[in-house]
Structure formats: structure tokens, C-alpha cells
Amino acid sequence: MSKPTKTEAELIAMARAELKAHLNCPDGIAISVLRDGDSWELRATADATTVGKPGYPECVAMVVQIGDHLSKQYDVS
């Protein structure tokens, strides 16, 4: 049985909404979808100023957790 598909933009929007519900992350974090064959994961990147802000490491860890959760539910189109 295949999983439903979502676009990269939909997955990123879902991740941002879930992230906002759990943590108060600094502005400037970019979330992207990294594909590897049939699988995918989320990655967070930011400039040096954002990386130095309080809460950034926790937000990156949460993005990874959210991506793991979403990748089990959805394929990316």
C-alpha cells in the first residue's frame, strides 16, 4: 500500500506549522526537502546570525523529528 503524496511545499508548510506549535524558533530558519531515492527527509539551514540565536539547536532537532514523522506518512511528489 502506497502512502499519499505531498509536494515539497506542502511538506515544508506542514513542518513549519508543527514546529510553531511546539517551539518558539528564531526567524531565518530555512527548511528544505532532501531526497534520496524513494525516501526523503527534512533539513534546516540558517545564516550565522540565526544559528547563534537561543533555541536554534532545539529547532533543528525538532525539524529532523518532524521530517522523520512525516516521511513515514507521506511520499514526496
Rank of each mutant, 00 (worst) to 15 (best):
G28M: 11
I12S: 02
K53W: 10
L23F: 08
M1Y: 11
A46R: 10
G37T: 01
L42T: 00
I66W: 13
D68Y: 08
L42I: 02
Y74H: 02
T45Y: 09
P26T: 03
K3S: 01
L23Q: 10
A21V: 00
A44Q: 09
I66P: 14
A46N: 08
I29H: 06
A46G: 05
E58Y: 14
I12K: 05
N24P: 06
S71F: 01
K53P: 12
M14A: 10
H22L: 11
G28C: 14
V33L: 14
A21K: 13
C25Y: 11
L42M: 04
V51P: 04
T45D: 15
A13E: 10
D75E: 08
H69F: 15
K72D: 06
C59R: 10
E18T: 00
P57H: 12
V33S: 09
M1C: 06
G55Q: 14
T45V: 11
T45S: 15
E18L: 03
L11A: 01
D27T: 03
A9G: 03
I12G: 02
K6W: 00
L23I: 07
V63P: 09
A9T: 03
V60C: 15
A9E: 13
A44S: 14
A61F: 05
P26Y: 10
H22D: 07
Y74W: 01
G28K: 12
T5C: 02
E10V: 03
E41M: 08
P54N: 14
A46Q: 04
G55H: 12
T5L: 02
T5M: 04
L34T: 03
M14H: 04
A13G: 13
A15I: 02
M1H: 07
L11R: 00
T7L: 00
D27G: 11
A30R: 15
R16L: 14
S77R: 14
A61I: 01
D75K: 08
V51G: 00
V33D: 09
Q73R: 15
S2R: 12
M62R: 15
A15T: 09
G52F: 07
D38V: 04
L34G: 07
S39I: 01
H69D: 15
K53Y: 11
R16E: 09
V63A: 05
D68H: 07
K72L: 06
L11N: 00
A21M: 05
L34V: 11
E58H: 06
Y74Q: 01
G52E: 04
L70P: 03
L11Q: 02
E8Y: 02
V64G: 03
A30G: 10
R43S: 02
A61G: 12
Q73N: 05
Y74K: 00
G28I: 08
R16M: 11
Q65M: 04
M14N: 03
H22W: 04
L23A: 04
D47Y: 10
K72E: 09
M1Q: 06
H69L: 13
T49H: 13
E58C: 03
L19C: 08
V60K: 15
M1K: 09
Q73E: 07
M14Y: 06
K72V: 00
S2Y: 05
D38C: 01
D27V: 07
K53R: 14
H22K: 13
K3F: 03
L42V: 00
T49P: 02
W40T: 01
S2E: 07
A13S: 14
A46L: 08
L34S: 08
V51H: 07
S71A: 06
A30M: 12
V33R: 08
V76Q: 07
